[in-house]
């Protein structure tokens, strides 16, 4: 696979990522008291922010050395290496689930049923999107957390250039950029809601390896006494979503979204007409 890319691109990427890792680990784990609870910042959070900031679109514009080092090719290779670098983490998750396998099996019903909780986004997200004036884009944007399988389903059914496709791409991109940062903070802050850390751990598995990692490891650092079970639950839930997620979108979330859309559409259309601003006239 490396034959298509220049070896200098690989070398540059290695140097940059080594430096990012060293800086991020030097900053180390930081805990802050926020209101009644605390937020834990992990090295991975600094790493994603530094990585993003040094790309040509942001700081690279100002600093010539960065721009010449981080070419389009380097960013492409980085995308490919995300998949490979996830594997050691996958192994570590396995070693957390394995010893706890009895506990995990005992919690089986909770694992299966909480998958349905992912539909929560349709009930909250869809009306909000429609209230903001989105049309069919709303369906794509809120049908699920929009990781790769959803992208595939919507792309196949409506085409990625359709309004539904635009919606799904929007949420997908936001997830890629903001997802880990958002869930890294939410994971530790959510403890303050009073929901049990085990339940939050299950919720962390949404079908994205990096979001699950961000949410569950900051949760685990916040409640260190429950660390192993939290990580085991999160990894199991994420694996399960990997299997069920696609079917849940095809057979549940998408039909439900379409049905609710039809039901609510007249209401939002009337409201828009009443406002009569004509903003949507093309």
């Amino acid at each position: 696979m490396s034959t298509n890319y220049k070896s200098s691109s690989f070398r540059n990427l290695y140097i940059i990522v080594f430096i990012i890792v060293i800086i991020s680990e030097l900053i180390g784990i930081r805990k802050f008291a926020v209101g009644p609870g605390s937020v834990v910042l992990l090295p991975m959070l600094y790493a994603v922010i530094i990585g993003l900031v040094i790309t040509p679109g942001i700081l690279g514009k100002r600093i010539a050395a960065l721009k010449s080092m981080i070419t389009d090719e380097v960013m492409e290779i980085a995308g490919m290496l995300v998949m490979l670098s996830l594997l050691p983490l996958g192994v570590k998750y396995g070693t957390l689930v394995g010893p706890n396998i009895v506990k995990v099996v005992q919690a089986g019903p909770a694992f299966l049923l909480q998958e349905l909780g992912n539909l929560g986004t349709v009930f909250i997200g869809l009306p909000l999107a429609m209230a903001l004036g989105l049309k069919r884009e709303a369906i794509g944007a809120t049908v699920s957390i929009c990781r790769e399988p959803t992208l595939g389903v919507i792309g196949e059914r409506y085409g990625i250039n359709s309004p539904e496709g635009t919606g799904v791409l929007g949420t997908y991109m936001m997830g890629t950029v903001l997802g880990t940062i958002f869930f890294g903070l939410l994971g530790s802050f959510a403890v303050n809601t009073g929901i049990h850390p085990y339940a939050l751990a299950m919720a962390s598995g949404m079908g994205s390896g990096s979001m699950m990692t961000a949410a569950s490891s900051s949760l685990a650092e916040t409640v260190p006494a429950m660390r192993d079970t939290i990580l085991a639950y999160a990894a199991t839930s994420n694996m399960l979503t990997g299997v069920t997620g696609l079917y849940s979108v095809v057979f549940l979330a998408l039909p439900l979204s379409n049905w609710l859309y039809k039901k609510w559409e007249p209401f939002f259309a009337r409201r828009e007409a009443a406002e009569g601003s004509g903003k949507d006239a093309k």
Binding site: A110, G117, T121, I124, T142, F182, F183, L186, T193, A203
Partner: peptide, 17 residues
């Protein structure tokens, strides 16, 4: 919308769990 989707998915599952 994306942020509300994140919150809806996460807490939807958490409440059922």
């Amino acid at each position: 919308i994306a942020i509300v989707v994140f919150i809806g998915t996460f807490f939807g599952s958490a409440l059922v769990a």
